[in-house]
């Protein structure tokens, strides 16, 4: 019953977005299609032009069904071993994003743990962490990729490092707060037991911080995909969704670009979904009220 009630607004919003997308495709492609027809000596015909905007090979904005076709063709109708397989490229990007997410989350939690245990670090380290995020990743990525390349590091690791660079920030900020979020009485309680710092961390600080951790993980997951894609751009478009984006724009293949964007969005949404499900599972184990 509840699911059915929730389905209606979800479907309505989805339908509205698709309708908006179609309207945008018509509006943006109209002029190019109409001019093409005029050059070809065809008489102006609104219906024919409209149909043209829906099936134009190099549209400014492809129609949803064109993108869907392209995704289907490259993802499922192309062998996984082919360089044209969308799934292959998505997997290459996902690999880097997951590795980056793992590195970034580990680094974020470690830095946050250090900050809450050593007061001096709050003031000395935090400004650098914040400044690090003021550098556009687009500017930083080529430097890191080239620098690591001269050290002989190529492939997954440099991309994971760029992804981690974007991931660790939200995790550090959230966990610096989350690790201090335990009830002050509970902290006094641990003191009356003469609990060690490690015991306070594992039995009180960390469990109390989990809601903060999951909130930041969801932000970090989306950032990790962006980071991996950006990191794929400077390497001269070898592989991954970033490479598909770059190749698509070099060779004027808007459908290829849009298919790669859809794949990126699906990756982000899937990571988010897995994290949200994990969060629900953990919350249930920890006795949170439904």
């Amino acid at each position: 019953m509840r699911a059915r009630q929730a389905a209606l607004p979800v479907l309505a919003v989805a339908a509205a977005l698709v309708a908006l997308w179609y309207a945008g495709a018509v509006a943006l492609n109209w002029q190019v299609v109409a001019e093409g027809r005029a050059r070809g000596g065809m008489p102006p015909d609104a219906w024919q032009t409209l149909a043209g905007t829906m099936s134009f090979a190099r549209p400014l904005l492809p129609a949803p069904h064109q993108v869907a076709e392209e995704v289907w063709r490259t993802a499922f109708a192309t062998p996984l071993t082919s360089r044209r397989s969308l799934l292959l490229h998505a997997w290459i990007t996902l690999e880097a994003a997951l590795a980056g997410l793992a590195i970034g989350v580990a680094a974020g939690v470690l830095v946050a743990a250090a900050i809450v245990h050593v007061r001096a670090l709050q003031r000395s380290l935090m400004p650098w962490i914040i400044a690090s995020q003021a550098i556009p990743v687009l500017a930083l990525a080529p430097i890191v990729i080239v620098a690591l390349g001269t050290l002989g590091l190529e492939g997954l690791l440099p991309k994971a490092i760029i992804a981690a660079y974007l991931c660790f920030f939200p995790v550090t900020i959230a966990m610096a707060k989350g690790l201090e979020a335990a009830d002050p009485l509970a902290r006094d309680l641990m003191r009356t037991y003469s609990a060690s710092r490690a015991q306070v961390f594992w039995k009180l600080r960390l469990p109390a911080s989990l809601p903060f951790l999951f909130a930041s993980l969801k932000v970090a997951a989306a950032a990790s995909v962006v980071g991996a894609i950006v990191a794929e751009l400077p390497t001269g478009a070898q592989a991954g969704l970033g490479a598909r984006l770059l190749a698509g724009s070099y060779f004027g293949q808007p459908l290829q670009i849009w298919a790669a964007l859809v794949a990126a969005a699906v990756l982000s949404a899937s990571l988010f979904g897995v994290l949200a499900a994990t969060e629900r599972l953990v919350a249930r184990r920890m006795g949170m009220r439904a």
Binding site: D183, D188, Y193, A195, L204, P207, G287
Partner: peptide, 28 residues
């Protein structure tokens, strides 16, 4: 660990079941 302290509020850890809350000092 000469004394046990009872606070104004129960200060039970919400993610631990009652038995696990009681065993917290014993674990430590």
């Amino acid at each position: 660990r000469d004394y046990g302290y009872v606070f104004q509020a129960p200060a039970l850890l919400p993610w631990r079941r009652i038995a696990a809350n009681v065993t917290l000092p014993l674990e430590i």
